[in-house]
Amino acid sequence: MQMFTSGDVEIAQCFWEEYLNVPKAFPALQAIQEKHGTGQLRLLLRHYPLIHACECLWQSMVPDTQQHFVPFDWLFIPWFLKNCIIPTDGYTYIEPISEGQMQEKVKNFLQHSA
């Protein structure tokens, strides 16, 4: 069983809070909630591989890149949820995209925000 750190818990809380703030901004997540319920969506948003991918992507960024996504919870988390996750079996399971795809999305974001 995977043990969660306080940082992992913080990321999961940020995922949930961001979704609750603007559910219509995340149609795939909203579809999961409508079809399978709030509890299932909450469970999926605290799935360790998703949290770990978010943390690893953040840690892989140099400080100058991180500055484009600060504050973490208000800019990076929504960006991550919109760009770096996919439902893998229609609606009941969410996984992060590959690390390479994430890095490419960060690169594209930086090019378009300059």
Rank of each mutant, 00 (worst) to 15 (best):
M1C: 09
Q2N: 13
Q2I: 14
Q2V: 15
M3Y: 11
F4H: 11
F4E: 14
S6R: 11
E10A: 15
E10L: 12
I11F: 02
I11K: 02
A12Q: 04
Q13T: 07
C14W: 00
C14R: 01
F15A: 03
F15G: 01
W16H: 07
W16A: 04
E17D: 08
E18G: 00
Y19V: 09
L20Q: 11
N21H: 05
N21S: 05
N21P: 00
P23E: 00
K24H: 11
K24V: 06
A25Q: 09
F26T: 03
P27W: 12
A28V: 04
L29E: 02
L29V: 01
L29G: 03
L29Q: 03
Q30T: 13
Q30S: 15
I32T: 05
I32N: 02
Q33H: 09
E34H: 13
K35C: 07
K35L: 13
K35Q: 14
K35V: 11
H36P: 01
H36R: 12
T38H: 09
G39S: 12
Q40T: 13
L41W: 04
L41V: 07
L45P: 03
H47D: 14
H47I: 04
H47C: 14
P49H: 06
P49Q: 10
P49W: 07
L50T: 09
L50Y: 03
I51V: 15
I51P: 07
I51C: 11
H52P: 02
H52L: 13
H52Q: 13
A53V: 02
C54Y: 05
C54F: 08
E55W: 14
E55H: 11
E55F: 09
L57C: 05
L57H: 02
W58D: 06
Q59C: 12
S60H: 08
M61D: 04
V62C: 13
V62H: 12
V62A: 14
P63A: 06
P63F: 05
P63M: 07
D64C: 05
Q67F: 07
P71Y: 07
D73R: 02
D73E: 11
D73T: 00
W74A: 04
F76P: 00
I77P: 03
I77V: 13
F80E: 00
K82L: 00
K82E: 01
N83C: 03
N83Q: 08
I85H: 00
I86A: 07
G90H: 10
G90C: 13
G90W: 06
Y93H: 15
Y93S: 15
Y93L: 14
I94F: 11
I94C: 10
I94P: 08
E95L: 07
P96F: 01
I97C: 06
I97K: 11
S98Q: 09
E99M: 09
G100Q: 11
G100W: 04
Q101N: 15
M102Y: 01
Q103P: 04
K105Y: 05
K105E: 08
V106M: 07
V106Y: 04
V106K: 08
V106E: 04
N108A: 15
N108V: 12
F109L: 10
Q111C: 09
Q111I: 10
H112F: 12
H112P: 02
S113P: 01
A114N: 13
